[in-house]
Design a protein around this nucleic acid. Structure first.
Lengths: 241, 241
DNA sequence: GCCGATTTGTCCGTATGTATC
DNA sequence: CGATACATACGGACAAATCGG
């Protein structure tokens, strides 16, 4: 969708990196030569490189060049990364996804909910519980709160497919950022009721607040994963100064 | 240390956001007016804003303005974020840190280690086990592998203080990026020997490969945290296209 | 050690496009 | 419609780091 030139260059470079057209640990062509290759300014090349740097695909070295440090990740379990719907994650992890809606209600936020979710008391919300299965095995239990004001006309039917498709496709909501916290918590009775926990007494828990492009929080979700099918990946860069 | 102008602007804006000089959900001054305020070009302001955006502090809105969406995080447990030494994390979390070196050896990587750590078989490594305590309670168990070639002259004495201080201060190594994977695993005998696990039978596990500014991996670490004192935070942005 | 060529890092001024109000 | 705001892109300038001769 974005017709931006830097975005095209970003995708092109990324493909050449992933397919090892540029070998691992090798230097990419200089910014100057990339600029003439793509017929653009050096700034535009630099912008594409900045994205690749943020993803940990390349490493720019002052005075030397830009090194390819991309390594493919193993995809054994269910890997979580950026903002994705369950469907998208499942497709990326090449797994068969199924969602069962356990609970679909509406409620008004009180002070307890405000403190936990970030929604002001009195706010009208949808509250859902959904059980996610991969290849037939129930492994993830989601508790979702959606802002009724913004996420209009939500139904159990939609919730059993993809709410994100509905938000972005039907309602024209632009999902912008998501603040996530990852913790490990004791299993609950609800967890044990729906998920075969084997001998684990803990769950990997992702809680997230998600905002649209107006800075309005429209979602709070707690996503509880069985440990052996959970993997979260991240590339961090060291902050100097 | 970075005397870059955009870095100064970034820090100045961040402080004004954190201290609510700019209120939550309010718009910042326009890029144009910030540029004249700081006596710089609009590009330089935009660069500072881009960093704040990546951190989830602000949200730029096309045609409208830039909204402050910073919310302070609760710091009850031990929160992990960017690349930090244990000491730095402890200071940020306002906790008293103590490190005990359980094991300090040298070894040569075999194929099992290569597969797990990313160090080629035959590579000479330091292998350490360290127990981390917060406010007197042992809570974290680290398994560290360091490249002997690069991390010269490591001693148990240094390992009991801060290896990162040693790397950056004494050896002049620049820490660049770290690829991290977060999983939840069963407790091991070693975990139970040193850490009071209460009734948890799982640990929050961060495994990380860390690279210097030449793209050379010099560290592989597995950091095992007791669940109730573990918290990982993250801001993700939705990728379009 | 010095010098010059190359490469990335920072910054500027300007122009144009697009969305909002 | 015009004014304002952010988004993209260009070309140029100089600084800082690296490397080879």
């Amino acid at each position: 969708m974005p017709k931006a030139k830097y975005n095209y260059i970003y995708r092109d470079l990324k493909e050449k990196i992933e397919t090892e057209y540029y070998a691992y640990q090798e230097l990419l062509p200089s910014e100057h030569s990339l600029a003439s290759e793509y017929g653009c300014s050096r700034n535009t090349v630099r912008r594409a490189l900045a994205e690749l740097t943020a993803e940990g695909c390349v490493q720019p070295m002052h005075g030397k060049g830009v090194r390819n440090i991309f390594q493919p990740v193993e995809q054994t379990s269910f890997t979580v990364g950026g903002i994705e719907s369950f469907k998208e994650s499942a497709r990326r992890n090449k797994q068969n996804a199924f969602t069962r809606v356990l609970l679909f209600t509406e409620l008004s936020a009180d002070e307890t909910i405000e403190k936990r979710t970030g929604f002001k008391a009195g706010t009208e919300l949808y509250y859902l519980q959904r059980l996610r299965s991969l290849n037939g095995k129930p492994l993830i239990l989601d508790h979702n709160y959606f802002l009724k004001n913004l996420v209009k006309g939500l139904t159990p039917e939609i919730a059993s497919h993809s709410i994100y498709d509905y938000l972005e496709g039907e309602l024209g909501i632009t999902i912008a950022t998501s603040k996530r916290t990852l913790t490990v918590e004791h299993v609950t009775q609800i967890d044990e009721k729906y998920i075969d926990m084997k001998d684990y007494n803990c769950m990997a828990v992702i809680t997230s607040q998600t905002f649209d492009d107006n800075g309005v929080q429209f979602e709070f979700t707690q996503s509880r994963h069985r440990p052996d099918y959970f993997r979260f990946q991240d590339v961090a860069t060291r902050r100097r100064g």
